[in-house]
Amino acid sequence: MSHFDPLRNPIKNARGLGSAKEGVHHFIVQRITALALLVLAVYFVVLIVSLAGADYATARAAVAHPCNAVLLVAFLVAMFWHGQLGMQVVIEDYVHTPWLAMSCQLAVRVACAFAALASVFAVVRIALGA
């Protein structure tokens, strides 16, 4: 879909694209985000466990640290991106009613987009001390 341009000649749109009409773009991005998460998820678990039992001020101070804020934002973006790609495949495989499948795809995208925006906003707000 991302490569489709209605103003282009149809053959130009079709060229290089597979049966899923998006070529290998989805496959590649799913794996790039997976590689990122391989590292970032470990970082996230370490951060959470180190904050287990910590009070509010300590938790806020940890998230506000520039290194943690940047790594957390990277983790959140990679996570919601990877989650959307994964859920897309699950819906494609198991939801066969066209309108329901499209509704599910949109719902997952809306959820991921809003959750990513909200969580990144939360980290930035804490990091900037607002």
Binding site: L76, G83, M87, A111, A122
Partner: peptide, 20 residues
């Protein structure tokens, strides 16, 4: 587990909003 983690990711967003 992928679907479970997707649901979990929404909880992470909620927890961060609460912290903020």
């Amino acid at each position: 587990t992928g679907v479970i983690l997707f649901i979990g990711s929404l909880l992470i967003a909620a927890a961060l909003l609460a912290l903020a």
